[in-house]
Design a protein around this nucleic acid. Structure first.
Lengths: 303, 303
DNA sequence: TAACTATTGACAAAACCTAGACAATTCAAC
DNA sequence: GTTGAATTGTCTAGGTTTTGTCAATAGTTA
């Protein structure tokens, strides 16, 4: 009994209630009348618990045969896993690195900054490192530069270090040659390249080959690159300016130039600001790197 | 009798009660009627104790033959260990990599194996990659090699790849020069080096500098290395043989040779098997890498 | 003789059992 | 929005089983 409680994670009360009310299992009894569960019973109860914690109600599933139960649980859990995020825990884990990196920037200590970022990536994984360390550090530097607490030199030093760390992360990923290919760039008149670098690294660590084109590219160049390389995805990073009147038209034109089977996604402040127009022209807008990762995973046939 | 009490950890009363009530063992008797236990009896009683502390009730398991008992205990304990240390979600996230790595081993595809492991490290973080991908893959290879499904060549190929990935992980960590120093080795007569490599990488990613000495080293050599390098921690990996009579004495000697302020920790099957003796001589025994990480973090003044 | 060990019977804490009740949700109907 | 019924996890009460420990008495070993 105790073993079953441990293994299934169900309380003794629930165990008995389920048996009494729904007859989910029928364990043998000892001479004294105590329950003796079989391995199959345990298997079954574990599945039922997982199904119920995923939202099913027992009365509905109590009579299901084991294989059907398995299928049900598998389906529920993969669905949930794809939706789930855990903001509070990761932030907590990332905080020491964010903190140390911030201080390294102040001190102009490039080596330490780079070490902190790389260690963050190794300890937390590249996704969390990008979301919870690199991005916050960049934002923090921007804020403090506005307040006059940091000089442009600080910012240059930091972005150079971040660039190196991103390059290292990309190089570390060892993407197989049969991986799908994404083209990453910044559209015309968008001159901030770092966001595109981050997107590029994200795609690489998600198992994509990346053709990085850089910043401020006209639609024709991007389309030509896609055609020659056979990429199946175009990812655009758009930061500033947010309300460039030419931007939407430029992307609409690119959409026209691309083959229909090539997906086109855009992210960053300027993308979110023009969301409705972009969506209308057939561009998907990403609100976070996490959203981009989900998309990349769903489009990657290897994973 | 005395001896049996010590070795099994059971009280004399319990010993007699179990024999009387459930007939768990039938020891020979001396002329005067006193119990004379055989080694098998002790083995059996120890297993029964482990099973009961894991939650089983004696009356149910008292009649089980020895091999079944062993299987039961092993199952209970590994299950418990894995439940405690893996909050469910990690496993789920790591599973695709473990899976792909296993298939890469089958196919002799070194490049893919290495790519999978490195991508696992980048996506999940090195700790999870080690615990949920590398360790399971190694175990899996061992199992399938025993079953004849894999050849020694598979194993060599895989360990070589794992070695490279561990080296890459260590190199990626960029440990600062002021970090505390740990000496990692394997004591005399312990020839498995890979466990020590894993420990070494774990320490590095936790922000320690590591002096890796390798396998099968006498206490004097280790002590000399510690003295010259000024290390503050000695970490020993001990896999096989588990019941080497010289092992405990060797570690006791090493403890004597080391300055008192230097911590000494041991992990691996052979460490767990000799736990009580080792602890008595002042060596801490780690049951998992997770436990080691906690210790490393608590000893590291920088973090 | 001193220190252990054996046997037997008894005891009490811990773990389980049944049956029933209760409270928080959920859900359909009004 | 409210009401009432069904669902479901938890709790209570009173009894049984299991299991570790103790005590009393007696024998064994060094």
């Amino acid at each position: 009994m105790r073993v079953v409680i441990q293994r299934t994670g169900l309380s003794a009360d629930v165990l008995r209630a389920w048996e009494r009310r729904y007859g989910v299992v029928a364990p043998d009894r000892s001479e004294g009348g105590q329950r003796l569960y079989s391995d199959d019973d345990v298997e079954r109860l574990t599945l039922l618990r997982r199904a119920t914690t995923a939202g099913r109600n027992i009365s509905q599933i109590s009579a299901l045969p084991l294989p059907e139960l398995e299928a049900l649980v598998a389906e529920d859990e993969t669905l949930r896993a794809s939706q789930e995020e855990t903001p509070e825990g990761r932030r907590h884990a990332a905080h020491p690195f964010t903190d140390a990196a911030g201080r390294a920037v102040e001190r102009f200590d490039v080596a330490d900054l780079e070490a902190q970022l790389r260690r963050a990536a190794m300890q937390l994984g590249s996704a969390i490192a990008v979301d919870e360390v690199i991005t916050p550090v960049l934002r923090d530097i921007g804020d403090r530069w506005h307040k006059g607490e940091l000089t442009p030199a600080h910012e240059h030093m930091a972005t150079a270090a971040i660039r190196r760390v991103l390059a290292w992360m990309s190089a570390s990923a060892l993407v197989p040659h049969y991986a799908p290919l994404a083209v990453v760039a910044t559209p015309a008149n968008q001159r901030h390249e770092l966001g595109a670098k981050i997107v590029s690294t994200t795609a690489t660590t998600e198992g994509w080959r990346v053709l990085f084109l850089g910043a401020d590219l006209p639609a024709e160049s991007i389309a030509a690159a896609v055609a020659q390389s056979g990429a199946s995805l175009v990812a655009l990073s758009m930061i500033f300016p947010e309300h460039d009147p030419g931007l939407v038209a430029e992307l609409a034109r690119l959409r026209q130039l691309l083959p229909p089977h090539v997906q086109m996604v855009a992210g960053g402040p300027a993308a979110v600001a023009n969301q409705t127009d972009l969506v209308a022209h057939g561009t998907r807008v990403m609100h976070s790197l996490a959203e981009l990762r989900v998309l990349l995973r769903s489009l990657n046939p290897a994973a």
